[in-house]
């Protein structure tokens, strides 16, 4: 295993290629994320941004290039996915809570079953996390009884329960009603301010501008342009970026 220090990027993506059959979705993407950084990946639908962050969690394998997460090589055929997933939490667009478990059970499940931690400790931590996502009164509700925004916050708490070093957010507000988007964004912002390394795929430009340290714009499987929010949103150079921003803003 490659040794990793805090000075190295916590996620290092180099020239990644990914195809689904004949369709090439990622055509050589490289980016580095330092510990504690918040980066947002934006771009039109089908530009490969979701695929990219799924690759970081080894949900999709890649055909070329390399991805290292805290020094773990994801292209290693003997990759220990469990080790990787302990370090990387992921939140999905469709929440994907386990419908047969209550909110707090959803949060507790992975630490109990995967990390085999003590139940009392896990419960205490899960309570804290429910408080953190402002749902302490919904602990015993089933996912079907919660609104979309509430479910998404439980999903965030569920990922945090594994104490990951990095959090991946895949268009987590895309399926939500406008009025519940905000409560989820506030939760993510709290996290970012606590120093969590976050990689977000999002369509919320205002939010990206507010919390991101760095913004990447992808189109057609490549990173077209990137930079800190101020320069990215005001001084975009590439015509494709300008075009995209003019449609969105």
């Amino acid at each position: 295993m490659v040794s990793w220090t805090e000075k190295d990027p916590i996620v290092s993506i180099k020239d990644v290629h990914k195809s689904f059959g004949a369709l090439e979705v990622l055509k050589g993407v490289s980016l580095d994320v330092m510990k504690g950084e918040v980066i947002c990946i934006i771009g039109p639908s089908g530009s490969g941004k979701s695929t990219l962050i799924r690759c970081i969690n080894a949900l999709n394998d890649i055909q070329g290039g390399s991805i290292h997460v805290r020094g773990i090589d994801l292209t290693d055929p003997h990759l220990n996915k469990l080790e990787l997933r302990k370090k990387v939490g992921m939140v999905f667009q469709q929440y994907n809570l386990f419908p047969h478990k209550t909110a707090i059970e959803n949060v507790m499940m992975a630490p109990l079953l995967v990390l085999k931690e003590d139940e009392n400790e896990v419960r205490a931590r899960a309570r804290d996390l429910m408080k953190k996502v402002r749902l302490e009164e919904k602990e015993n509700a089933y996912p079907g009884e919660l609104s979309g925004g509430q479910q998404q916050r439980v999903a965030i708490a569920r990922s945090l329960a594994m104490s990951p070093d990095i959090m991946l957010f895949d268009e987590v507000t895309a399926a939500l009603d406008p009025e519940t988007v905000k409560e989820v964004l506030v939760t993510i912002k709290d996290l970012a301010q606590d120093g969590m390394t976050c990689i977000l795929v999002t369509h919320e430009m205002g939010f990206a501008r507010e919390i991101a340290d760095h913004i990447y714009f992808t189109d057609n499987g490549v990173i077209v342009e990137h930079g800190p929010p101020e320069t990215f949103f005001t001084k975009a150079k590439d015509p494709r970026t300008k075009d995209f921003l003019s449609q969105i803003l």
Partner: peptide
Amino acid sequence: STREAASSLGFSRAQTFRY
């Protein structure tokens, strides 16, 4: 997607199936 959520939390294939 529910299976995927479980595997991204580190569940093994057997655990995903069982739980």
